[in-house]
Each structure stands twice: as C-alpha cells, then as structure tokens.
Design a protein around this nucleic acid. Structure first.
Lengths: 241, 241
DNA sequence: TCAAAAGTGTTCTTATTACACCCATGG
DNA sequence: CCATGGGTGTAATAAGAACACTTTTGA
C-alpha cells in the first residue's frame, strides 16, 4: 500500500465545452483567466474534481456554477493527460461537452460568470493550456453525434421552426444543406410534432412551429431505429494505381 | 498552491481491452488476479500511470509488457471515475482498446503473462472492478469504428482471405453478412491488393489471398474518402401516433 | 408593391438488398 | 466421387441528390 501511495500525487480535472446556438451561429462559453498560469487568456470552464465527486457530477457542477442551468445534455469526450499539459503539476483532465438552450443562460449566475463570454466557434483563437485541442475533439464528436442522434433539439428552444433546425445543422456540420431534402428527411422520421402555431411579427410568411417528440423517439430506439443524417458525400476519384 | 495540493491524493490508471481474432472468434486477453482486491477473478490488463508517463504510453506499456508486442493499434475509449470504483482509494481509469494479430502473441513475454488467457468475448463472465462496464464500452466503440474505419485488418495476418475478413466483421458486428454483397462492397473500395497467391493444403477450392493497401487508404482519406459499411438495417414500423 | 423567408414535388442517379449455382481442392 | 468452402451476377427496391417557383406576411 505504500508503493501504491506514491501514485497519489496527481490531480484530475474536468473541462467542459458548453455549446449554445444563437443568431444562426454555434457558440461556446469561455472564461477569461484572472490568474496564472495563462492569466488573461480565454479558457474552457473547468475545475478540479473533488475527492468524493464523480466525474459527470463535476462536469455538471462546473456548468451549473457558471450558468445556473442544471439537467443539461452532457457527454464525456476524451481524457487529456500529457505529462506537461499543466504547468503546476500532473493534472489529467476529462473533457466533456454540453448542449444548452442559450436563452436559459443567465449572466448573473455565479461570481466568476462576469468573466464568461460566448464566442462564435469560428472565431475562437488561442486558448489556455491544451484547450484548443480539447475544443476540437469535442467539436468533432458533436458533429458525429448530431448526425446519429437527435441532439440538435437540446440547443433550440422548445418550439422551433424547420429553418432554425436546418441552420443549426448547417452551423454544426459546417456545410450547406438543401432545404427541400432536409425537410423531407426530418419530417419522414416522424419525430417532430407540428404545434399548429406560427411565428409572429416576422416580416415574411410566418413559419410553422414544431417540437421534438422525445417519447416517440424513445419508443423507436427500442425498436431498433437509428436517427441518421448522411454526411454530404465528397465524390471520390477512382484512379487506380 | 497548498489548496491545490489537497487534490493530489488520487491516482489514475489505464485499462486495456486487447482484442484478437482466432478461429472465427473475437477474443480478449484477460488476467487472473493474484491479490486482493478481487483476488482470483479475471480482470482487464491495466496499471497505474507512472508520474512521468503519458496516458497512451502507459496503455502501450501495459500491452507490451503482457504480450511482447509493440506498435499496435490503440485507441482511448472512455474514462471511468466513479468515487468507489476502486476499494483502495480514489482511482480513475482511462480505458483503451487495442487490436493485435493474435499470432504475434507470445505467452512467454512477461512474468505475469502466465496468468493471462484469451477469452471469447461471448463467454466473458463477471470481471473484477467495473471491468464489465469498461469492456462493453470498448466493444461498442469497436463495433462503431470497424464500420467507419478500416481497422479490421489489424486483427488479421498480413495475408488473408475474403472469407476470413467477412467472418471477422461478423464476429465484431454480431450479425451475418451476405457473402456476395460483402465482397462487392469491400472490393469496390479498391483497398485490397490481390496477392495472386492462394491458400494451400485446404480440403476445398483454395481461396485467394489479399492484403490491405494502406498507402492507398491514406491517399483516399486525404481526398475526403470515408470507409463505410452500413449496419444491417432493422426495418422500422411506421405506425403513426 | 416590394422584400424576405416559408413551403412544396419530381426526376435522376446511386446504393442496397435478396438470391442460387458452379468450381477447385483434399481425402 | 464426395464434402467443403470459394467464387460469381442480376434484378428489384430504396435512398439520396439536384433543382425553381408560389405563398404569406410586414413594412
């Protein structure tokens, strides 16, 4: 047990890539560091894991302390443990991403929230630690997930238009989608409930509002259904060697 | 820094699900524990991570110490950190899986290798710690990977028959595949080189041998190609609510 | 009446499925 | 000459891609 104890000289943390969707743009919540190391730089929200805390709990806690929101979609992505990734000691970090409806976010939630700011994912520059690497792993996983699971809805308000949903997918997948094909595909899954309501106060034909039918989704999954949006295919040149 | 130090009371380990393929069966390498906790039970090979060791390095080391094999396909899967998962203290573990050509495995490699044994994945019973959970996460990821990346070849000898490849996919995906469709699909990717050699000494028409063309694969990936085998589709009943 | 976004179908092409017989070898 | 697994093609169906005009509203 004493040999064993030599290993108890390390810490672990969680870092959380918090995604939101606003104004047609995919955003993440970053914190400006006030202390060294990396003072003044933007970083992913994260914290050391308490001795009696599960990893998922720690990730939820970080998110709730920062945004005031609980009960969000949260998924573990990857663990980063390069020996020198943290200047103060050996700290491995477990990366998570979470999806929130950006409208629920309150700036006032926590003392350090004043240093937090939403950044469009396309404009994120150099981050503290290895956080750019973490961000890109999380973004990659999100791209994959959104094609195979109906997660997009987590980022939207309860009631949304098909165009909003399409723009969300376009922002995440970083591609353009055909309106008619997108609608056909989404509606053919029968996972949206037509609320028989319309947008109001827009200077164009108002769009119908839908909500996600999660009961039906659960039922379908049990029967072996899998949500799937194809990635737009890049044609491959079949030149033979 | 002293508050910070309170967190340095934890250890982390790696556990490695080592897959091999033999006699048409997908297998994993397990170790019989000789000491408490869980003495006498089978467990995944793993070890605490050395203070100056990267996570991937630790996972490779575990594999090499056990099998004598280096340079294998290795991928991080997920990190398990439930507070009480290890009876002796707070230990979070980073799970990896690796794929080896089972013929390269030497029983004599390490002192503790005598306690190691290959188990058909379908017959694995209760394992030590949370290792059943880890195994199932790794197996799930393997299933997914094998459909989207040409990893299967890592489990086969350099030269293999199409039937062997098909059986491998069937073992991993736990499904049956149509022989003609499988061959058509695989060959249409132009990722196999026909070695113009045949099996010898078999009591039936000898099969042609192929090898994987990894150069060509790298080239195709650069051009945006993605290896993809569809999962066999379960028909979904579209009963409307 | 104009601008702006909503909504809607068809055709073409490509990928997937289902399916059965002859072939080459060793014993 | 028998048993064993190797090897091959086609037709039917389903999924994906490309594409343009009319509708409804507010200003």
């Amino acid at each position: 047990m004493s040999e064993f104890n030599n290993f108890f000289k390390s810490a672990f943390s969680v870092d959380n890539v918090i995604f939101g969707f606003d104004e047609g743009d995919l955003k993440i919540l970053l914190i400006k560091r006030g202390a060294d190391p990396f003072s003044g730089m933007w970083a992913l929200p994260g914290d050391l894991v308490y001795p009696n805390e599960d990893l998922n709990t720690a990730a939820s806690r970080v998110l709730e302390e920062l945004t005031g929101i609980s009960d969000v979609y949260l998924e573990q992505v990857q663990t980063f443990g390069a020996v020198n990734r943290h200047p103060l000691g050996r700290v491995i970090t477990v990366a998570y991403y979470s999806l929130i409806n950006i409208n629920k976010y309150m700036v006032t939630a926590a003392s350090f929230a004043q240093k937090a700011k939403w950044h469009s994912i396309s404009t994120v520059k150099a981050l503290a630690f290895d956080h750019n690497q973490i961000l890109s792993a999380c973004f990659d996983l999100l791209k994959q997930r959104v094609r195979t699971r109906p997660l997009g809805f987590e980022l939207l308000p309860l009631k949304f238009t098909l165009t909003a949903l399409q723009h969300l997918y376009e922002a995440i997948l970083e591609t353009e989608l055909d309106k008619r094909n997108f609608r056909k595909k989404i509606l053919s899954m029968n996972l949206l409930i037509d609320l028989e309501e319309a947008q109001e106060g827009v200077a164009h034909r108002p769009a119908k509002l839908y909500k996600f039918d999660s009961d039906r989704y659960e039922k379908l999954v049990k029967d072996g259904f899998s949500f799937e949006l194809k990635e737009s295919k890049k044609k491959m040149l079949l030149e033979n060697s």
